[in-house]
């Protein structure tokens, strides 16, 4: 039996983030991270809804969002399949703009969690752990 863990998706039903958004984010993370590769078949929206214990329309909506972004193909017979998605072409100026926007969103996010009472040191450690993970996986 293979020791490679199959891709898994987690949702937190108590979170403030809507479940549909959690599913989209979770799947997008797996797609970007390469844990889901082009040609991989995903469970049907009905099966995934049953496994997660959420409404069928919630999963269907998440799948449609990722279809609109070009990540998935929803086919009647073959089910939901991961598509080959070419890397978006960006010129240097747009890339710089997006990186700046990412930096701003990250600062906003940190400020939001600090306002909730989380220590700055803990948030920095989380960001560093994320960077380490990224380095180790690449």
């Amino acid at each position: 039996m293979s020791n490679v863990q199959p891709p898994a998706l987690a949702v937190d039903v108590d979170s403030d983030v809507p479940i549909v958004q959690q599913i989209v984010n979770g799947l997008r993370r797996l797609l970007v991270g390469g844990e889901l590769s082009p040609g991989d078949a995903l469970p049907s929206s009905r099966a995934l809804a049953r496994d997660l214990g959420v409404h069928f329309n919630t999963v269907a909506q998440a799948y449609r969002t990722l279809e609109a972004e070009g990540w998935l193909a929803l086919k009647r017979r073959a089910g939901t399949v991961v598509l080959e998605r070419p890397a978006p072409e960006l010129d240097a100026r747009n890339a710089q703009l997006l990186a700046r926007q990412f930096s701003k969103e990250l600062r906003d996010l940190r400020a939001r969690y600090e306002a909730l009472g989380v220590e700055r040191r803990a948030l920095d450690a989380a960001i560093e752990a994320m960077i380490d993970d990224r380095r180790n996986s690449s």
Binding site: P7, A8, L9, A10, D14
Partner: peptide, 10 residues
Amino acid sequence: SATRTVSLER
């Protein structure tokens, strides 16, 4: 647990 983890493998 509020976190529900499921396998995506068919």
